[in-house]
Nucleic acid binder design. Structure first.
Lengths: 225, 225
DNA sequence: TTGAATTTATGCAAATTCTCGTAGTAGAAG
DNA sequence: CTTCTACTACGAGAATTTGCATAAATTCAA
């Protein structure tokens, strides 16, 4: 496992590097956001641990920039600020988790585990990056969707939802599972975003002769082949 | 697995209950510490998930009291506050773990797994997801039921009831057991829903030559092979 | 600002759940 | 065998929930 640590405070980075390496993790260190942007394309990390307070471009801006550049590695934010607002902002901008300093190293490890588990799972489950069924073709790497040979435009959320359904072909997935997997952190289960996005997807990829997504009333949805 | 959730915020408790139940966990809800103390001796839980902020007695006091009363069930604290002090206090007073809101549901599940590892926690992908007997075939993953090769529609409750009966093939189950497992109702003997749903099921899956569900007068029902 | 993406709100039709009431049944007691 | 009683079956319909389309509101990047 290879992790990038973005941290300018030497005391903290030393602490992190020592702890992580003792757990068999390879660590790269960048002291500011600019360094990360200069080299992000050369190395494939499994996880990025990033302080929010950085000299120059701050951590949240960095996350935003990386996501914009289609870097989807899990990112764990690190901050001395414990306010919920920061947490929410960071998560909104594309971070996957958040931990406040100081913290138990055990907790950090368990969060790292949690964040990289899905990744590994996906790698095991989806060795092929192209999924095809009926008139539908989805290129998971290139972010492209073809319907009957015609390329169609999906918004990021629509794409993520489709990918999740495809990862669970022929298995029922509940709205809660979809919310967890596609929307991430939330306590709001009085929302119908899932329904709405299922509807968007259906409009874009289905037609009367080619249906993929079936509703199981009172349960959830299933992508059937 | 049976978990007690102590949480006064309905949105959060709804979210927790839904997510946990979808992972095959039985959930009891208490809205305050006092309710827990009133009934902790009657039910044996495998884990307690407890919010710190509660009306009246708070979560930390509750943990302290339970430990004083020699209740050693693992306790996972839940809080919006990210301060280290709270975390340390909670752990000092006898909690086993701590998670701050909001969180990834995956992380909660993995912590639950960690805390209950001693007990058997069999939530690994059910290897046999298809049950078949006589003309009846039930696919638990795809939520499909076939009778003599013909797919039939079951409502969620009907399906859940059927699954419960199948899980207890050749074993008598009482109405109370069914109520607990399928409806989650604990104290209500003034309803005949079970009878009604047994009737629905029989109409949908049985015919004069293929009977599966037998009534044991004064006792309950049994799915016989 | 605009326009696209996302989220929230709302209304309706259809499905589901559940209560009630009545009819029926099995088995014990006479 | 008949009667009685506790138990069971199930139709009818009310109450609730659900799925989904539509539209409005909000967010966010350019």
């Amino acid at each position: 496992m290879q992790i990038l640590v973005v941290e300018d405070d030497k005391r903290i980075s030393d602490f992190l590097i020592k702890g992580l390496e003792e757990n068999g993790i390879l660590v790269t260190l960048c002291k500011n956001a600019e360094d990360v942007l200069a080299c992000y394309s050369t190395i494939q990390w499994d996880l990025i641990i990033c302080d929010i307070m950085l000299p120059g471009m701050d951590g949240i801006q960095l996350v935003q920039t990386l996501r914009y550049k289609k870097v989807f590695v899990p990112i764990l934010m690190l901050s001395a600020l414990g306010s919920v607002q920061d947490k929410v902002t960071a998560l909104d901008y594309g971070a996957d988790d958040y931990i406040t300093k100081p913290f138990h190293f055990d907790e950090l490890l368990s969060r790292i585990k949690a964040l990289t588990r899905r990744q590994q799972y996906q790698q095991e489950e989806a060795p092929t990056s192209i999924f095809s069924y009926g008139e539908l073709t989805v290129d998971l790497n290139q972010y492209r969707v073809l319907v009957a040979g015609q390329e169609i435009d999906l918004s990021p959320k629509e794409f993520k939802l489709l990918v999740y359904l495809i990862e669970n072909v022929d298995k029922t997935v509940t709205r809660t599972q979809i919310l967890n997997a596609v929307w991430g952190i939330t306590f709001d289960n009085h929302t119908n975003v899932v329904d709405v996005y299922i509807s968007y997807l259906r409009n874009k990829i289905e037609n009367p002769n080619n249906k993929y997504i079936y509703t199981l009333k009172g349960v959830g949805y299933i992508f059937k082949t």
